[in-house]
Design a protein around this nucleic acid. Structure first.
Length: 417
RNA sequence: GUGGCCGUAGCUCAGUUGGCAGAGCGUCAGGUUGUGGCCCUGAAUGUCGCGGGUUCGAGUCCCGUCGGUCACCCCA
């Protein structure tokens, strides 16, 4: 098995065939669709100043406090491997000034969080994220949610569920926290240990606690949005109305909590049954980031690609590959081998996928290799053919074999098949 | 970060009270002097994750460690 020397670090993985084709498909399909919606890609650095994340995600969030890979560089600067994509993109957007006021951007790439790995959770993981910059507007939120669902659908994920909620504006958030805290405080003793801790910190987390005792207490509480301003509630109602008008199935979950500080108004989470307890495959929301002298507002989402792959593997199990348009050259003898090498190269120049076994193995072994590679055709060039100046072309699906001369062979192989 | 389970051939896994390292699949070769898939025969392949300890003797027991997995916490 693998010795330590060959193992990646905990929570990090090598991605290669055969799963890599799943990843490539996901990415190419996403690029196609995002172009349809007018989004363009942005690639920001993996390494950023740590304070970018502290300011935008929130100083006391777990992501920043416990999970960020941080270190000091030679100049004494505090750096961090990005734990998520939005902050870096917003830093870029802020740097562009007015030119980026209505930017539509997306990113794909690795993110890093130092957590214990679990189903669909890695320490180096990958997200595809979308950011639609622009001022608060229910229609803009609805459009981004529509894109989010369209994308998951395009990948082949049918079993996703969208949970929707509102966080209101920053002022609403304070009112909600205070309101919930006041209602829960008398029952402090009846909450689980985690929730007693949450009561003093992130109160909203009590709302999605899995402990049955806490659940009972929570069930008796009014929806958090009752503590919000009329303006925030009207905004959310409008988002829901627009989504219904788009025929998108979403479920409003008044107790849905999104952890990062930068969220305002609409937030959502998409779950998939293949993921086990950690069933969120994607999350999104409207956000407002304060980047020193500039603030940036927009709506966006991020999809965990490891989780999407897990879900896809369950919904669309990968199947035995069909035969590929691939020509396999089988040569026997010194001269045929050399000619085979020229033939394989000449086919590739013409845009035809071609391979040959350079190992000078038996014809049987070369046939097996061609079959294993799922080649559609083999070209046989042995001593007899060298003498006659011909090639045998065999179709591996039908088993039909013909003897051809070079011009005819080339014509057949370069014709679309 | 906390806790449970797991780690033996490329893969999936068996391995009895501690007593010679195993199977299936895959790979390779032969059966077929030049033809894949199906079939038959044979062969190769091991740091039993790693390091200590106990023992005449450890894949097996103990400790540590690395990795995987699941749940919690948190999040995508």
């Amino acid at each position: 098995m693998s010795s330590d020397a060959f193992q990646p670090l905990q929570g990090m993985a090598d991605l290669a065939a055969p799963e890599i084709s799943r990843w490539q498909h996901i990415e190419s399909e996403a690029r196609r669709l995002l172009a349809l919606y007018g989004f363009s890609e942005v690639r920001t650095p993996v390494l950023e100043r740590a304070d970018l994340f502290m300011r935008s995600l929130g100083d006391d969030t777990d992501v920043v406090q416990k999970e960020m890979y941080m270190f000091e560089d030679r100049g004494g600067r505090q750096l961090a491997l990005r734990p998520e994509g939005t902050a870096g993109v917003m830093r870029y957007v802020a740097s562009q000034g007015q030119d980026a006021q209505d930017a539509r951007l997306y990113y794909v790439g690795p993110m890093f969080r130092s957590e214990r790995p679990q189903a669909g959770r890695k320490r180096q993981f990958h997200q595809l994220g979308v950011e639609a910059i622009g001022a608060a507007n229910p229609a803009a939120d609805a459009e981004v949610i529509a894109l989010h669902l369209h994308l998951l659908r395009a990948w082949g994920l049918e079993q996703c569920r969208v949970h929707l909620n509102t966080r209101g504006l920053p002022a609403d958030r304070i009112a909600v926290q205070q309101g919930i805290r006041d209602l829960l405080a008398p029952n402090r003793e009846n909450l689980c240990a985690d929730c007693q801790r949450r009561l003093d910190g992130n109160v909203l987390r009590v709302l999605d606690c899995k402990n049955p005792d806490c659940q009972r207490l929570i069930a008796g509480l009014p929806a958090p949005s009752t503590f919000m301003s009329a303006e925030a509630r009207a905004y959310f109602d409008e988002v829901v109305r627009l989504l219904n008008g788009l025929d998108l199935k979403v479920e409003v979950r008044p107790n849905l909590v999104r952890g990062l500080d930068y969220y305002i108004h609409t937030v959502w989470e998409i779950t998939h049954p293949a993921l086990g307890a950690q069933d969120a495959i994607a999350g999104g929301g409207r956000y407002l980031l304060n980047l020193g002298s500039r603030t940036v507002e927009g709506a966006g989402f991020a999809i965990g690609l490891e989780r999407a792959v897990v879900a896809l593997e369950q919904e669309r199990p990968s199947q035995q590959a069909e035969r590929l348009p691939l020509v396999w050259i089988i040569a026997q003898g010194e001269r045929a081998n050399e000619e085979g090498l020229r033939l394989v190269q000449s086919l590739r120049w013409r845009g035809v996928a071609a391979q040959m076994d350079m190992g000078r193995r038996s014809m049987k072994a070369q046939f097996r290799a061609a079959d294993r590679a799922r080649a559609s055709h083999v070209v046989i060039r042995g001593e007899a053919e060298v003498e006659k100046g011909t090639f045998l072309l065999k179709n591996l699906s039908t088993g039909v074999q013909e003897e051809l001369e070079m011009p005819e062979l080339m014509a057949r192989l370069t014709a679309p098949h």
